[in-house]
């Protein structure tokens, strides 16, 4: 009887340990079991992707519809090419939709927001979003601001 409670205790302990690992996998690192939901690929070229990372969210109207899977340099156009995987069910994006790199909060994570265009034609798998808006680079902003104030002073 005493060994029984002991064994139950150990069993619960081991179970809790494994459950904790599962929780870390799913809840904390956002690994999803249903990771094989059908997706399709889209590309977008940005002048500056500064700060965007692989696995960043792709959202539309604040709803996550996919993630960034790769970022590399487009050698011919000297731009950053971002590969995104979007959920298959969101297959009605017009070709003139806009992708912009946004920031959550002033210094928060970067993510891609897509706003819908008005064209009849829809984006297909491995299509490219032409209309993009680059990441907000703080240095440029500060630079512009300073330039502005200098030119004002000189007037």
């Amino acid at each position: 009887m005493q060994t029984r409670t002991l064994e139950i205790g150990v069993g619960l302990f081991l179970l809790a340990g494994l459950l904790a690992l599962l929780l870390l996998a799913l809840r904390v690192s956002g690994l999803s079991v249903s990771g094989n939901t059908e997706t399709y690929k889209l590309y977008a070229n940005f002048d500056n992707i500064a700060g965007l990372t692989v696995r960043a969210k792709v959202t539309m109207a604040g709803v996550t519809i996919g993630k960034v899977t790769a970022i590399d340099l487009d050698r011919d156009r000297y731009t950053g090419r971002v590969t995104m995987e979007l959920e298959k069910k969101v297959d009605n994006l017009p070709v003139d939709s806009t992708a912009s790199i946004l920031t959550a909060g002033l210094l928060g994570e970067k993510y891609i927001g897509i706003s819908v265009g008005g064209d009849e034609e829809l984006l297909k798998d491995r299509g490219t979003i032409r209309d993009t808006q680059s990441s907000l680079v703080l240095e440029d902003l500060i630079g512009k601001f300073l330039l502005n104030s200098v030119s004002k002073d000189s007037k």
Binding site: L21, A25, R27, V28, S29, G30, R55, A56, K57, G108
Partner: peptide, 21 residues
């Protein structure tokens, strides 16, 4: 929402969770 999504975006299972283990 942003508490958890921020966490999920930055924590990688292989790199962070498994390395800790």
């Amino acid at each position: 929402g942003s508490f958890w999504s921020n966490m999920q975006n930055s924590v990688e299972f292989g790199n962070d969770v498994l390395n800790g283990v």
